[in-house]
Each structure stands twice: as structure tokens, then as C-alpha cells.
Amino acid sequence: MAPAPSKLYADDVSLLMVLLDTNPLFWTSSYLPFSNFLSHVLSFLNSILLLNQLNQVVVIATGYNHCDYVFDSSLATNQGSENGRMPALCYDLLQKLEEFLVKDEQLHKEGSEKGLASSLLSGSLSMALCCILFYDLDICTASLCLIFRRFFDQGHSIHNPGYVAIMNSIFSAQRSMVPIDSCYIGSNNSAFLQQASYITGGVYLKPQQLDGLFQYLSTVFATDLHSRTFLQLPKSVGVDFRASCFCHKKTIDMGYICSVCLSIFCKHHKKCSTCGSVFGQAQSDNESASNLKR
């Protein structure tokens, strides 16, 4: 997180990628209505754009069935709505967001799957990281900001499709030195988001009072990376790095790892259920054609 020393104006210009959770299944049950939430977020985005005229904001909506860009400050038209009462930012964003939600709903009707599931964080994270590639990180510092209503930790295992993808994105962000900040509006802490922020050196925050969401956002997440070194930001209160075993989905702090495919088991097995290797003896012919070969 060292500030770029080459250019003087570089240290406080920031590119902020905001990933919004728009999962309809979570926001309906919330005591913070989506419209209130949006007005907090809009003020937050406006305040970032006002902090420095070179600042950039990109908003990606993370839905239940797909993800899409809903706002990009570099492409924003400067015209507001007809009667001029609504600023451009809100107008553009709200219009795109509405289209997004309609499409998400359509996709949901087409899909046969039922049940409550988290938004597609892995998709929007991947998109955001691709997008950051295109900005010159010498003249601005990029950070990702996740604002999530709720996120299920469906077990840290390779059987959970989202897990591998999210972890891949997190490591990629770490390699490109992009911190992931997460603001989590759920009831329990999310181990995924905590890990994301911890690994990439970002801030994880679970606001206590949702009425003051804007204040949390603007004091914690609006600060550029250079100024963060001078601030007392929320510190992590013990990140859960335990894994869960593949056989019973229990969270364990000691376990057995398959040396071939790194599956985690809570007790000793004779055979790996993921890759089919037999343990403790030489492999016979049928295992050498490993199941991992795809």
C-alpha cells in the first residue's frame, strides 16, 4: 500500500470500484429498506467525487442472477433529469440500476432454481478486477469496496462453486495490490468478506447503527489509501482462518489433508472421496488416471 512516489498529485487520487449487493431476497427482509440504503450510498458516491476532481467511481451491481456495470463516472453524461431536480449521478445510476433489476428478475423467472442464495460476488469481483487493469495505477490508487447485505459462508470447500472463484479473485487483488474494503450489513460476521479484507489489507466493517450508514461509509471507506496511514481505522477482531471438512461440513481446527488434491477431512479415511487416491499404499493403475483430469 505504499503511495506512488513518482507523481505529486498521485497520492490522493483514487479509483473506487463499488460492488453493490442488490439481492432482492435479502433486502425484502431487511429493517433497512433498499431505498434508504441507496440514498446513503448515493451521498457516499457523490462525496467521493467531490473530494477530488480526478477521483473516479465505478459501480457494479451484484444481483442474484447476473452482474453488470451500473455507473462509471468517466462515462457519465452531465445532464440530469428533465426537470433538473435530480443530479446526474443519481439519474444515471438509478436508471441503469432499474434496468438491471428488471433483467435480474426476468432471469430469475427463467431459471428453475429455487431457494435463498447469496449474490454472485465472484462474478462482480472478477469484473471489477478486469476493469482496474485499464486504469493507470501510477496516477491513482484503486480500491474495491463491497457493500453487502448478507453473504452466506457456504463452507470453505472446493465443492462450493463460489468459494474457489472468490478466493482466486482475492489473491489476484492481493497480487495487484488492490485492497478490498467490505461493509457488511448482516447480523453475523461474514468470514468470506473478513478474509478478503484481511488478505488484501483492506478494512472490514459491520456497522452497528444502520441509520448512520452514510457516516460509516464516508469516514471509513471514502479515505484514500495514502491518508489511511494517518487514521485509526477499525481493526480486525480475529479473522477465522479455520477450514471446514469436506465430509461433514464441520468447521475444524485440526484435520487431514489429501496430498494429491488438498481435500480436507476431519478424520482418517482409507480413500479420498474427491480424487479417489488410496492412502498409505502405492497407487494402483486405476487411480493414476486421476479423476481430477477433466
Binding site: H66, G111, G123, S126, L129, I158, A165, S176
Partner: peptide, 28 residues
């Protein structure tokens, strides 16, 4: 082409596949 290289060398995720809901878990 830039995204192609980034996706395969660093990210290891396809943004397109990840932003659509799978009917079944990928691993299965």
C-alpha cells in the same frame, strides 16, 4: 486480449461464467 491474459495468468476466473448462476455446483 488484455483481459484474456489477465484472466488466465492471474485471476483464474471467467467473469462471464461467474456472473451467471449455475444450475449445479461447478465441481460436481
Amino acid at each position: 486480449l488484455d483481459c484474456d491474459i489477465y484472466i488466465h495468468e492471474s485471476l483464474h476466473n471467467c467473469p462471464g461464467c461467474e456472473s451467471a448462476r449455475h444450475s449445479k455446483p461447478v465441481a460436481a
